[in-house]
Design a protein around this nucleic acid. Structure first.
Lengths: 130, 130
DNA sequence: GTTACTGCAAAGCTTTTGCATCCCT
DNA sequence: AGGGATGCAAAAGCTTTGCAGTAAC
C-alpha cells in the first residue's frame, strides 16, 4: 500500500547500473551523467538523480559526503571506509572492520546504526607533484 | 611575501568569533548568519563566508562534510570525532583518540595527515518520536 | 596611507521539481 | 491499461565573486 514501489528497468537505468557495477572511482552525479551520455546521448540529469535516489532507497548505493563540492556515490555497500586525497579528491576504499565503540556516556539513548572512518592525506601523485 | 595576510578584527568578525566560541552545535553558515543578524542587522553572508574561510585557513576552524545539505563548522579543532543523528542532523562530539591505521598496502605512497570517525544513528529524541 | 574587510547583488554550481509524454510490466 | 520513468526546463539552495566604499592597522 505504501512505501514499496517497483523498480522498472529502462535502458537509461541499465546504463547507469552498468557504469556503476564494480566502479571504485566514487563518481559524482556529473561524472555518471557525462560518462553515460557518450554512449546514450538521450539521457537527462533528472534521470540520473532519480535513479540514484531509487538505488539509494533500495540500499544498493551509498551517498558519500566526502567531497566539499558535491555528493559522491559508491556502489559497494559492504561496510568499508575511505582514504581521501585532499588535493585531487581521489577516494580509495579500505576494507577493514575497525572495532569502534562510542563512549557509553555519549551513546546514552542514541541508537547507533553505522560508522564510517575517513582518512585524509595526499595520494602518491599529489604528494609528489605538489 | 606571499600567502600570509593579516587577520583584521572587525565588529562583524568579533561577533562571529563570539558566537562560535565554545559552540558545540556545529552550525551551518546560515545558522551563524541568522544568529548574529539578530544582534547586528548589518551583516552580510559574504562576510560570514569570508570570515569562515579566513578562520579555516588559519586552522582555527573545521569545515565538516557531515551534512547532506550544507557545510557545518566546528570551532573545536582538537582531534575528535562525531556522532550524527540521521533524522534531525544533530551532531555530538566524541573526544576519544581511536587508534586507527590504514592497511599498509593501501597506504603505499599516500601521505596520511588526518582521520575522522563518523557514527550514524538516531538521537534520543528522534529514536523516541519516529 | 595601505590593505583588507564590508555589504550588496549577481552569478555559479549542484540538486530538485513540475509537467507532458512515453514505455515497462 | 496504468503506474512509473523520461526529458526538458525552470527553480531552488548553498556558496562564491565583483566591485565600490569603508575601516582596521
Amino acid at each position: 500500500m505504501e512505501g514499496k514501489t517497483v523498480f522498472k528497468m529502462t535502458p537509461q537505468r541499465a546504463a547507469i547500473l552498468e557504469y556503476l557495477d564494480g566502479n571504485t572511482s566514487h563518481p559524482s552525479a556529473e561524472d555518471i551523467y557525462s560518462a553515460i551520455q557518450k554512449k546514450y546521448p538521450m539521457m537527462s540529469f533528472a534521470t540520473v538523480y532519480n535513479t540514484l535516489e531509487a538505488l539509494k532507497a533500495k540500499g544498493m548505493l551509498w551517498e558519500l559526503n566526502i567531497d566539499d563540492q558535491r555528493k559522491r556515490y559508491d556502489p559497494n555497500t559492504k561496510l568499508h571506509h575511505h582514504l581521501i586525497c585532499e588535493k585531487c579528491r581521489a577516494v580509495v576504499d579500505i576494507f577493514k572492520d575497525f572495532d569502534l565503540t562510542v563512549p557509553a556516556d555519549i551513546a546514552q539513548g542514541f541508537m547507533i546504526t553505522g560508522k564510517h572512518v575517513e582518512f585524509y592525506g595526499l595520494c602518491p601523485d599529489c604528494a609528489k607533484n605538489g
